[in-house]
Design a protein around this nucleic acid. Structure first.
Lengths: 214, 214, 214, 214
DNA sequence: CATGAATGAGTGTTCATTCAT
DNA sequence: GATGAATGAACACTCATTCAT
């Protein structure tokens, strides 16, 4: 563990203040509509202060994404390494992401925006960042292994699988966040639920139906 | 059919010109980065002319979405009414949307952005629009019927199903557009493919594997 | 002569308005301290209007210099071509510049700034402009011819001569503008006076002294 | 000579540090583009420290000019008092200034800017400063004496003579610094050269031509 | 109706200056 | 005294919107 002197520690604390404010404002307004003044005010600093910690608006935004991705990724790596079984890894992976996004709903919004469409101005810089590539690789490996083990269809490219996986996952979280489920489930239960849909689809299976929603 | 006089007809033609230009520019730059001047220039009109047909930028954007949704919806209604069988309806529905988005890739981009993240400034207005609600209802009915017929799991709310449906669908189209499929398939084939994933999931089924991608 | 339609003519008039205001403000405050708002207000336009006619602050500044240089240069070329004798050409050249600067004192200030020291941000762009190079060449040719004709010492590079020439010239105008001369002289008289100093120096010559200043 | 205690001495040393840094930065970037942070960093002090020694940016700038002028002036006074002959005084004066500016090229740049154009924000304060007035008076006396002795034309005001003198002088140094002279000359030789031009002008004199430059 | 020049509020960013440590 | 983080006013530039022609 690195020991920081007071100055460096304070610097990190302030950076974190600003990132936190930025997370909220970007989630609320989107990249373009969010202003540095909004963010500074939310963080209770003056406008110029933000520029002591971040080169420009884009840097602030990217730093935010990278910082959060780093947290997410380290959690995923740590937890998935605890089990050997591929299916268990998938479950744990899902559980970890679900838990993370439940705790970081603002970031979740930004993450989703970034993955769908906003990719105009900033996307390039992000997609080249180390954490982002590590994250992609991590998920990709998981999927490939599941394909090798016969868990997942092999007539699709891993990237397609990931897209579908992510999209199911996202829509489920969105529903979850909208509290549209009758009873809020915990991350573990949700994880199995998502994986079930993912692997078995939405089609009716004999005996599975617990006639409740309609 | 309503018969329009020259004036009204011209008005509609101009509106369509502008909407077409807007579609392209919004798809290319995103809502915030697109300027009215860009759009006017693309449509070969003067800036001010846009304001004769649309109240403001937001109105133009919403009108665009609504207009396109109307086209999409009418196609879907027309085609799905031709068959009786629910599964066939689902296939036709998918085929129609796939075909529509293939022809309207710019709109598809906008549609995706709007559904995932941009929902900030404009979303509210859109979600209350008539077409949008009709479209939602149409899809919802389709899903409910499929649930009643035992095609689709009943332990999920229709809205959740729709979200998942849409997200699979979207990621497949994105892949399609990125030309990541080995052989470009036509809308009919794609439709079956999406429905297969949707109903049966990504999990391995005996005998289905045509070991090709990995 | 080119005939302009109303639109083009108006555009030129407005450009001229803004250039005139810019000339005044830049002369008063210098490049950095002058603001676009100052200039716009002085020209009785809104801030944004300036940007309809000039790309940015630097462009406005350079355009101003170039426009004025063009006026100056065309006057010089026209007048000096009327005489054959090299000494007469020198006199006419001086007379023309003196007259021009007398009428354009704001520009004179800017011109002097630009030639001495401010050359930081903008100088490069200016020095590559066509008018600027034409002007330099024109003066250079004049000096070279004077050297060939035996009017000017040949143990100095033309560029050095020009520097000295310009510096004498400038200091004389500055004095003139400060109205330090006992009797304001006209451009013709001043021209002979500057040329006399330039060619014969400040040293006493027999018979020349008209004991008046001290 | 005043004897300073440690505290006062340290204070002066620090002031000198900062002035030296300021000299470099102002010469490089010009008054407006130079920032206090640049200067503080160059001097290896903190930003705030500058404000312990100088009221504001303008004060720092003026102090710099005054300090340097004081050095220049004291050198001139000392050296010119060593000779009696007026022409010799003029030569010595020139030699001293040339030598000083050769050693202080950064200051020379600033000095030139200040004399030609930057005079906007700061000029007033400088022109009222004691050193500046002493310097002016010193040069003025030199010129007046030269006029009385018949070395310099009397049909010009001393101020005009000084302006012309300075402008020739400046353009020659600029050329010198640009190394445009074929062989770099020393201050003594340069001094005679400038004085020659000053007194006899640029015009051709019989027998003087050493046909080399063109 | 159509035009597009004009507007001016609003944004990202810089930097002289202050002040708590 | 020295520090340098924090401040916030100020500026260049953009663009949705208006309106005279």
């Amino acid at each position: 563990m690195v020991v920081l002197n007071r100055k460096d520690r304070d610097r990190l604390l302030r950076k974190a203040d600003i990132l936190k404010a930025a997370e909220h404002v970007f989630a609320l307004k989107g990249y373009d509509k969010a202003t540095i003044q909004d963010i500074a005010k939310k963080a209770q600093y003056a406008t110029g202060t933000v520029y002591l910690y971040f080169r420009d608006k884009g840097d602030l935004y990217c730093s935010l994404l990278e910082e959060k991705m780093k947290d997410l990724l380290s959690g995923i790596k740590e937890k998935t390494s605890l089990v050997k079984d591929t299916k268990a890894k998938l479950e744990i992976f899902l559980e970890e992401e679900l838990g993370f996004f439940k705790l970081n709903q603002d970031f979740f919004k930004i993450f989703v925006s970034e993955n769908n469409g906003l990719r105009f101005a900033i996307g390039f810089r992000i997609s080249r960042s180390l954490v982002f590539r590590e994250y992609s690789e991590c998920v990709s490996n998981l999927v490939k292994k599941a394909q090798q083990k016969g868990l997942i269809r092999r007539d699709l490219y891993p990237d397609q699988i990931i897209d579908i996986f992510r999209s199911i996952f996202t829509s489920v979280i969105l529903g979850w966040l909208r509290k549209e489920l009758r009873e809020p489930k915990d991350a573990k239960e949700m994880s199995r639920f998502v994986l079930d849909i993912f692997l078995n689809g939405i089609g009716c299976k004999k005996g599975l139906i617990t006639d409740c929603c309609i």
